[in-house]
Nucleic acid binder design. Structure first.
Lengths: 93, 93
DNA sequence: TAAACCAGTTTATAATATAAACCAAATAAT
DNA sequence: ATTATTTGGTTTATATTATAAACTGGTTTA
């Protein structure tokens, strides 16, 4: 039985990746809304995805307000697709 | 975003359920082989699935040797199917 | 200028997964 | 016959994880 990438096998990280797979980029606030997570949890999980090289996190400004935007990397895209393939063997899809 | 049942969102428990969904019953030794898990880990996770009402665990004998067999319950079957549906929204399937 | 707010980060805690250590019975070896 | 090994597990300890609570630094509002 195939291994399930532990970085992706986490509800919140998977939700984030799922969103980022379908969108050019997404910012912190948007991800927080969509995933209904707390800021702290989201912050931690974004760090993990970033450390794993699955996303890039860019801090910028919009006017005077900070804005943190995230994008999936090519590596992240691949990992996600492999995770999906592995899961299919578990789910009988 | 849908919640992912935490009882099923675990590699080993999911693997066990996946096997049990396709088979009338399976014993401890078989599950251990198929999942390539340690006996300790498997024992703990079977307990959790059992406590959740997702499987039944029956201890019997075959000759003089003990034999622990597992079957998925109707509740377990439903939970598994719902988990699959929930996951699909994450995986874009 | 103080109070409330926004966008996050850091830290503490609780839950989880996992393997190591253990146990009792059966079989094999000496 | 007695000791060693294997089988089929369970219990317990540990390391990792997920999560929320508490905090921070700047910003707008009153």
């Amino acid at each position: 039985m195939k291994e399930l990438d532990p970085i992706l096998h986490s509800q919140l990280r998977l939700a984030v990746m799922s969103i980022l797979m379908n969108v050019e980029e997404a910012d912190f606030v948007y991800l927080k809304e969509q995933t209904e997570s707390t800021a702290g949890n989201l912050s931690v999980q974004l760090d993990k995805l970033s450390s794993a090289g699955y996303i890039t996190v860019t801090k910028g400004f919009v006017g005077k307000k900070t804005r943190t935007t995230c994008q999936v990397t090519e590596q992240g895209r691949k990992a996600f697709e492999q995770y999906v393939e592995a899961l299919k063997t578990y789910l009988n899809l």
